[in-house]
Design a protein around this nucleic acid. Structure first.
Ligand SMILES: [Zn+2]
Ligand SMILES: [Zn+2]
Ligand SMILES: [Zn+2]
Ligand SMILES: [Zn+2]
Lengths: 135, 135
DNA sequence: TTTAAACTCTCTAGTCACTATAGAGTCAAG
DNA sequence: CTTGACTCTATAGTGACTAGAGAGTTTAAA
């Protein structure tokens, strides 16, 4: 199949597929006489693997490592779980940050009745102050 | 004061300060005879305002709008709170996404005892499957 | 006074994971 | 034989910086 069909089958854009090839996440394929890339069912599966990993917010370099493991059947499997748990730590850390942000933003929003003019806006005053807002 | 002092006073790097000027978040300053940028206390305050907004993950274009409001003392203040509540929605949406991710990653991690070889790794099998993992 | 260090200037390129063009070539249907 | 859909490569843009080259300026010590 050609790149367009792979694209519709996987939901990855044509440019993204070519980009993954350039980044060595997809192997270079055969080409047709007219220099079109040719794919098969294994390509679909491979690309869907990548897509699933991306949907878990794994970086391309994390995915590259997972792909290497995937094609090293005798490697110890705890490398896989080690990678995933370090990634879950990235996610958890980011969640913490964002919840903290949410609190601060909510406090800011509550600090002003939002009925006057900018001149007296408590939100802007709080943003100007360097210390953290008390809730 | 010169850019280096502004940098240490605010904790923004020299390059970042120049970048903010290029992006019109900081006004163009006076220059010394030797073409060095010169700043004053108002610059410090202005830059700290930006820094505080960035620490709340506001985008530079959101900050540009806030800065405009900040220098329009008679504008209605609800524009400020409107902007902040739309931003808090960005944050909340991202938190939702990440919590969902965390769940999926945790399920994946639990799906494999991680004691065999890659060949039998349930994590990789689950990543290969296209449907979502059941927890 | 010289000279070295520390600072500043502009300009360019790199980061990440794409996305969006431009301009050219290929292929199938009508 | 032409039209249109598809594909190719190469390049530039996104956001918010960061890093570096190569040149000029200032300050302090030797
Ligand atoms: Zn990660
Ligand atoms: Zn207000
Ligand atoms: Zn926002
Ligand atoms: Zn496993």
């Amino acid at each position: 199949m050609k790149i367009g069909e792979l694209s519709t089958l996987t939901g990855c854009s044509v440019q993204t597929i070519r980009y993954y090839e350039k980044e060595h996440l997809l192997p270079k394929t055969q080409r047709s006489e007219g220099n079109f890339r040719l794919y098969d069912d294994a390509s679909v599966e491979h690309l869907l693997f990548i897509k699933r990993c991306r949907s878990l917010d794994l970086s391309l370099s994390e995915i590259r490592q997972l792909l290497e493991l995937r094609y090293s059947p005798n490697a110890p499997c705890d490398e896989v779980s080690h990678m995933l748990s370090s990634h879950i730590n990235h996610v958890r850390a980011r969640i913490e940050e964002l919840i903290n942000l949410e609190d601060q933003l909510a406090s800011l929003l509550h600090s002003c009745p939002s009925q006057g003019t900018v001149k007296k806006c408590e939100i802007l005053k709080n943003l100007t102050a360097t210390q953290k807002i008390m809730s």
